[in-house]
Amino acid sequence: MQKLQLCLLFLAGLSGTVAQTDLFRKVFVFPRASNNSYVILKPKPEQPLQSFTVCLRSYTDLPRPYALFSYATKAYDNEILLFKSSSGEYRLYVGGEFVTFRVPETRMDWEHVCAGWESTTGIAELWVNGKPLPRKGLRKGYSISAEAVIILGQEQDSFGGGFDLYNSFTGEMTDVYMWDHVLYNMKSIMWGGSFSRYIFGWNNLHYELVGDVFLKRRLLF
């Protein structure tokens, strides 16, 4: 049994650090720009998505554009993408198309972001630190494939790869969740309120660290 455990640990080390655990009071630290460091999220939707909500919390001093959450399929590398294109602007992609949300300039701090979309109306929404921005229209009637690669910290320009150093995230990330429906009580989510059933969540996350990304204790915020 001990030999088997050692063998499994060795194999895990060859492909990155694989884990599934409650990450309470932990963060992923992306210490430097790269095109080979990221986090793969292992859970996937069981069927095509007609709606979703993605939430996460990030902390960075980057002045350039960067990707936070990338969900790529064989049809579209930007099937779902949450991308900060400037200090006052987010882009949400669905099915290769995007809408832009302009946010008020704030001092450097942790930023909690939730993005939601529903197929029936095409309504896309973004919440920043618990506050909603004006909703936009995007990809009405579209269905998001469940055959996906889900990555934090890089933008996929191909299925599972094609990373660009200058779109990589550096900083810290925590509290990552995804649901197969649209949520509205974002302030409760922001402050750790109770959650409905999700595709994946921070308190039971199955992930793989690739390259120079580290799981560290969270500093107070």
Rank of each mutant, 00 (worst) to 15 (best):
R107L: 14
E79S: 08
P43M: 05
L183C: 14
D212L: 03
N185A: 10
Y166I: 11
C55T: 13
P48E: 00
Q2R: 12
I40A: 14
H181N: 13
H206L: 10
W127G: 02
T170G: 03
S15P: 03
P132N: 04
E79N: 08
E89W: 05
V99W: 02
I189F: 13
E155Y: 02
R217K: 13
A146L: 01
G153V: 02
E147T: 12
M178H: 07
S15D: 08
E97Y: 00
R32A: 13
M190V: 07
L82W: 03
G122I: 06
A75C: 09
V39M: 03
G201L: 05
M190S: 02
G211R: 00
P63W: 08
L183D: 07
R102E: 11
W191V: 11
T174L: 11
D61G: 09
A124P: 08
R91V: 01
D61S: 15
D22T: 05
Y76W: 10
M190H: 04
A115Y: 00
V149C: 10
K3Q: 14
G88R: 13
K44T: 11
F214I: 14
E118Y: 02
P31Q: 09
K131P: 00
E89G: 02
H112A: 07
Y93Q: 06
L133Q: 07
I80Y: 09
H206M: 06
M173K: 05
Q50Y: 08
E111Q: 12
F200H: 06
S70I: 08
E118Q: 14
P65N: 09
G192W: 07
Y76D: 10
K44H: 08
Y177T: 04
K140P: 02
N129M: 11
S145W: 01
G161E: 06
T121G: 01
F52Y: 14
D180R: 06
W202Q: 07
T60A: 08
F159C: 03
T53K: 00
Y90M: 05
N204H: 12
I123M: 08
E118N: 13
Y198W: 09
E97H: 11
F98A: 15
D212Q: 08
V39N: 04
T121C: 01
Y59T: 04
L8P: 07
D109H: 13
L219F: 13
V18I: 14
G193P: 05
E208M: 12
